[in-house]
C-alpha cells in the first residue's frame, strides 16, 4: 500500500465520522398621559374606568431558597446570605406578587403612542430590578449595570430578536427595544445563573404587576375585555370582564400549588 492510501486509512476514523457530523404594587399604565386613540375609536377621558384586584395563592409553595452567589465574590459580598429566590413572593395572607396582569383582548384596533420615557431594568446586587415588568412595543428599554462586577444581559424572546450584550463596567447602560407584542420576554445573566427577569411587551398601556397581591389597571375605556394574569411558574389565567363608563371593576385571580 502506498503512502497516499496509508494516509487515507489513518484518517478513516475521522473521515467516516465527519460524514455523520452535520453535522409591585400595582403598577399604573407605563405612561400617565391619557392614551391617544385613532379618530375611529376615541377614548373619552370622562368615561374611562379601572380594573383593580388581587392575586392570591392557594396552597403552600416551595420555600424560597437562599441564592448561593459564591461563584462571584463581588456578588457574595454584596448579598451575603440574605438573597432568596423570587419564584413565589407570597404574603402571609396568600397574596401573590410578581404577577403580570394585562388586557389581552378587547381594545380592538386602537393604537397608542409609544412612550418617550424608557423602561428601566437594573442589575443591582447581582439581581434584576424589577423582576417582572411591562413595557411597550418600540419603547426603549435601558438596562443598567449598577454592580461593581460584570454582567451579560441576555434576552431570549420567542417572537422578537434575541440579544446578548456584555456590561463589564459598573454604571454602563445599554438600550434595546422590542418590535412585537410578546408576553413574556425572559432575561438572564449567563455569568450569574440565578439572575432572571421577565418583561411583558405590549402595544397598549393597560398592564400592571401585582405587588402585595394588588394590581390596578387604570384609564381603561368602557368595553368588554379578556384579562390575563401571568406567573413565571404557575402559568396564566384569563377572565372576561366588562368595564362600564367610569366604573371600577374588582377582579381577583387565584393560583394554586399542590
Amino acid at each position: 500500500m502506498d503512502a497516499r492510501k496509508s494516509w487515507l486509512l489513518a484518517s478513516i476514523m475521522a473521515l467516516v465520522l465527519t460524514v455523520a457530523c452535520g453535522g409591585g404594587g400595582s403598577e399604573a399604565p407605563a405612561e400617565s398621559a391619557a392614551p391617544a386613540a385613532p379618530a375611529a375609536a376615541p377614548i373619552d377621558a370622562a368615561t374611562v374606568g379601572n380594573i383593580t384586584g388581587t392575586i392570591m395563592l392557594e396552597g403552600t409553595p416551595p420555600e424560597a431558597e437562599t441564592i448561593r452567589m459564591n461563584s462571584d465574590p463581588v456578588c457574595a459580598q454584596e448579598a451575603g446570605d440574605s438573597e432568596l429566590t423570587e419564584y413565589y413572593v407570597v404574603g402571609d395572607d396568600g397574596s401573590l406578587s410578581n404577577v403580570f396582569v394585562y388586557v389581552k383582548e378587547g381594545l380592538g384596533d386602537r393604537t397608542f403612542p409609544t412612550p418617550s420615557e424608557p423602561a428601566m431594568l437594573d442589575q443591582d446586587g447581582c439581581r434584576y430590578t424589577p423582576h417582572v415588568f411591562g413595557m411597550r412595543v418600540g419603547q426603549t428599554l435601558t438596562v443598567r449595570n449598577s454592580d461593581p462586577t460584570l454582567h451579560n444581559i441576555h434576552a431570549t424572546p420567542a417572537n422578537n430578536s434575541e440579544f446578548n450584550t456584555g456590561q463589564p463596567i459598573e454604571g454602563m447602560t445599554f438600550d434595546a427595544s422590542f418590535d412585537t407584542v410578546e408576553v413574556m420576554v425572559p432575561f438572564k445573566c449567563d455569568v450569574h445563573g440565578w439572575m432572571n427577569a421577565y418583561v411583558g411587551v405590549l402595544d397598549h398601556p393597560y398592564f400592571a404587576v401585582s405587588d402585595g397581591g394588588s394590581f390596578d389597571i387604570s384609564e381603561l375605556p368602557p368595553g368588554d375585555y379578556v384579562i390575563e394574569a401571568w406567573h413565571e411558574i404557575l402559568g396564566t389565567q384569563t377572565q372576561n370582564v366588562t368595564v362600564g363608563e367610569s366604573e371600577t371593576v374588582e377582579l381577583s385571580f387565584t393560583f394554586s400549588v399542590s
Binding site: 462571584d72 462586577t149 451579560n152 450584550t165 456584555g166 463589564p168 445563573g193
Partner: peptide, 26 residues
C-alpha cells in the same frame, strides 16, 4: 453565552482579560 463577544472577551483581547473577572459562567 456568559461571554457574549468573540473573539474578544468583554472587549478585552482574549489573553489580557483580567483573571479577577473570571467569575460565574465566565
Amino acid at each position: 453565552l456568559a461571554v457574549p463577544d468573540w473573539p474578544n472577551t468583554y472587549g478585552y483581547f482574549m489573553f489580557s482579560f483580567p483573571l479577577s473577572k473570571m467569575v460565574g459562567g465566565i
